[in-house]
């Protein structure tokens, strides 16, 4: 097989893997939008906040240390212990559940019945608030996530495929972290689907997503379901934060990963979990393929904008996205 074709396959495979990483972020958006009709602008910041909290707990950092020291004249920064990864993840999940409760109790309970644009604006405020709280709690320095996730190319795969297309083919490169992320995404999506299909609360969540009024009339607590959905979105944000944070360290640019999820949502639809996955795969593969084939001719760095071009093309022909629910407005 010619080397160029082999490299093209490598680009496509890595595009698919990158797409999975985008999907991890997009999933959180879909969960909240599907259940409450809110486009959660704060999803990227939630990923940042969750990862910061995890790293902070693992390192035994004192939350709000800077503020405490400024007020009381103390010099405390660390508790002096390190928390094992699994325990820290469990504690971070609890923090995200508390966050979901607080969001519901102090923000959205007061905005029931408001226009979607108002709810969207509230999430913008929430995003900046959460970014500030994250900074105050854990500081703005870059934190390393020592979860022991594998990194680097799979040497086995490289060695096994090296030389297939001649001496200038160095074997297929697949990042081990991307393989882990793909496994995690599969488990996550399967769990979310199983939860929504086979559990009482999952069915209640779907009922709320279908029709708030009808769900209320059969005794489903909207308040509880929304806390549940925000908690699930918080958990998904934690997973996305861990995967992205493992690449770059946990830092404030993590909040910008939401920008990678937007074209995925536009393409896959805002209401479909499978759509978020397929959308991510198409965007990941499409942008990497475009960069590989046309990037060198036009100066490169095409991925950010090309993802949106791809999404816009789908949007023009199918406004609800590939998997979104069809928009029907009756007069």
């Amino acid at each position: 097989m010619p080397t160029n074709v082999l490299y093209l396959i490598e680009v496509l495979a890595n595009g698919l893997m990158a797409g999975v990483m985008y999907s991890l972020v997009a999933l959180g958006f879909v969960l909240i939008f599907k259940a409450s009709g809110i486009f959660n602008y704060a999803q990227g910041v939630m990923a940042l906040f969750a990862a910061l909290t995890l790293a902070g707990i693992m390192e035994g950092q004192v939350p709000f240390a800077h503020m405490i020291n400024a007020v009381f004249g103390t010099k405390i920064h660390h508790f002096g212990w390190h928390v094992p990864a699994l325990a820290a993840i469990a504690m971070t999940v609890l923090v995200m559940i508390a966050f979901a409760w607080a969001v519901q109790r102090f923000v959205f309970r007061h905005l029931v019945g408001q226009e979607p644009i108002i709810l969207f604006m509230a999430t913008i405020g929430l995003a900046y608030f959460l970014e500030g709280v994250g900074d105050l709690m854990w500081g703005s320095d870059i934190k390393t996530l020592a979860l022991g996730l594998p990194q680097g190319g799979s040497r086995w795969l490289e060695d096994a495929t090296a030389g297939w297309g001649g001496d200038d083919f160095y074997g297929f490169f697949i990042d081990k972290l991307d393989i882990v992320a793909t496994g995690v995404a599969i488990v996550l999506v399967a769990s979310l689907i199983a939860f929504s299909q086979y559990t009482k609360h999952g069915r209640a969540m779907r009922a709320v997503a279908d029709d708030h009024q009808a769900a209320l009339s059969v005794g489903i607590s909207l308040n509880f379901i929304w806390i549940l959905v925000w908690s699930l979105a918080g958990f998904v944000a934690l997973v996305a934060g861990i995967m992205w944070g493992a690449k770059s360290g946990v830092q404030f640019s993590l909040s910008l990963i939401a920008l990678k999820a937007l074209p995925v949502l536009m393409l896959g639809g805002f209401t479909s979990i499978p759509g978020a996955i397929v959308g991510g795969l198409i965007i990941g593969m499409g942008e990497k393929l475009f960069e590989y084939t046309f990037g060198p001719m036009i100066g490169g760095a095409t991925e950010n904008w090309f993802a949106y071009v791809l999404a816009l093309i789908v949007l023009v022909f199918r406004p609800q996205g590939l998997f979104g629910e069809k928009i029907i407005e009756r007069v």
């Binding site: 890595n14 490169f173 490169g300």
Partner: peptide
């Protein structure tokens, strides 16, 4: 591209 969180294409 800014911020540089995703560089897989360049390094491939």
């Amino acid at each position: 591209d800014h911020p540089g969180q995703e560089q897989k294409s360049q390094w491939l």
